[in-house]
Amino acid sequence: MVLFWLILDSINGAEACSFRGTHRLELMKHEIDHKALSFSKNGPKELWPSVSNYVLQVSSSDDSGGGSYPEVISTAQADWFRHKSEEINPDVRVPELIFWHIPSRAYKKEGVAAQEAELGIMKLLTKRPSVKAIFVGHNHGLDWCCPNEKLWLCFARHTGYGGYGDWARGARILEITQKPFSVKSWIRMEDNVVHSRVVLSP
């Protein structure tokens, strides 16, 4: 079995979008050139100004927006996802976990800063029985998971020392079992306190 992690850059922007004075293209280049344990890579140029759409295939052990740009997953990105998922997992037998940064409007609850518009990605995902969960960030103080139609919507938790806010740091942990397939998740805080255990896929 192979598990596909489909990663979409939902912060559209490149040259005009920067972090502490460093443009996103430079950040991506540095990440790719200098981070030996990073799997980041540049995405298709036709999805410009988005810079980091890619697919990471994870094999089992026995298987040889931001800035001045719109904060949305564009129709071009949704089309890219549809083509890649049909190419890689045409019979939808392989479970898929989806990661992007800014939550879609499906996450719209109190305190959620969602994308500006919904341009088709959620419709695609909810129709794919192989999609088990979507993970987002952006709202640093949130770390909940909740079921939505046939999949789960989850926040990742404020993890690092950068960015805004002074929330306690933690991380969303995923435990994936191959046979039988299951995904369990919980939050582990920096002080090792564990909370919010949930089974995302039995």
Rank of each mutant, 00 (worst) to 15 (best):
K45Y: 03
F19E: 13
G162S: 09
D91M: 04
Y107P: 02
W167L: 10
Y107S: 02
P180M: 05
R172P: 00
H23R: 14
K45Q: 12
K41G: 04
R169N: 13
V51N: 07
S52T: 09
G160W: 02
P180E: 02
L97I: 15
S52A: 15
S85K: 03
P49C: 07
G170P: 01
G141S: 00
P44I: 05
L8A: 05
H138T: 04
E149S: 14
I176H: 01
M28Y: 09
E110Y: 04
T22D: 10
H195G: 05
S201Q: 12
P70A: 11
Q57K: 11
S104P: 05
Y164C: 13
A76G: 14
A156L: 06
G120L: 05
K184G: 02
G160M: 07
A117E: 11
W5G: 07
Y69I: 09
I173D: 00
D166R: 06
S130C: 10
R24H: 10
C154F: 01
N42K: 12
H195D: 09
G67I: 03
S40K: 14
P95M: 08
Y161W: 08
H83C: 09
S104N: 03
F19G: 10
W167Q: 12
S104L: 05
P129T: 14
S60R: 09
A14F: 04
N148P: 03
F4H: 15
